[in-house]
Design a protein around this nucleic acid. Structure first.
Lengths: 114, 114
DNA sequence: TTTATGTATGAGCAAATGTTCATTCGAGCA
DNA sequence: TGCTCGAATGAACATTTGCTCATACATAAA
């Protein structure tokens, strides 16, 4: 229930916070983190952190269907976290840029200091 | 369908990837990122990035029920992203550590370079 | 103690998510 | 042209998620 009083406790702080939030790309940020928030996608990115791999190898690696891997790769691709490269019948994927590695490093730091 | 051949295309690369994945705290990483992958929680963290705020103010700020905010704060608390401090009837929340800020910065960098 | 107000929690529900199955697309080869 | 095999996509389904509503807990004041 909405039991808080009508008057704010810290009006100026709330106003400041509102400005910060309005200025930030909230939805895009949440989207990016949400993409990273799945074990399968984390595994895919970890696997690609060393070198590129074809879809076939990734599917074998995680012991899930090729379809599942393709679905996840699509999500990662749309969010520019991985990039495909076709070579004959095979499609190789690799990390799109170094931001991914840095994000990983920060995530790890948080996890490890617990 | 599982249509890939039985033999791996790059056995040694897959083996190496498997080692990397086994060494990493995959589930914990995914959990952390998943927590950050929600607009409401992102807004809460942004609001707290400048200074601590009480639950009451946060609820007012996002125009959602106090219950919803409490539920999200609980999730953030469990994952050590925010920390509560009681002062009378009010409970103030603030960011738990600086990792959150760094994670945000990296997320922003990725989002902005699109 | 009783009451009031801020916060936390449980139940229930609609929406979103990740998987599998089935099918289609794409490239190379007979 | 057909055929094969790797990859992508759509549908269906079970699970998860985030919200609201109702209720319980906590602290301060009457």
């Amino acid at each position: 229930m909405e039991t808080c009083s009508e008057t704010l406790v810290h009006p100026e702080a709330v106003a400041e916070a509102r400005r910060v939030i309005d200025r930030a790309p909230v939805e895009a940020l949440a989207e990016t983190f949400k993409v990273l928030g799945d074990p399968t996608r984390i595994r895919i990115l970890l696997a690609l952190s060393a070198r590129e791999l074809c879809v076939c190898d990734l599917a074998e690696l995680f012991d899930v269907s090729q379809s599942a891997v393709s679905h996840q790769l699509r999500i990662l691709r749309v969010h520019r976290l991985v990039r495909p490269r076709r070579e004959g019948k095979l499609v190789y994927y690799r990390l799109d840029d170094d931001h991914v590695r840095t994000l990983f490093a920060e995530g790890l730091r948080h996890v490890k200091e617990g």
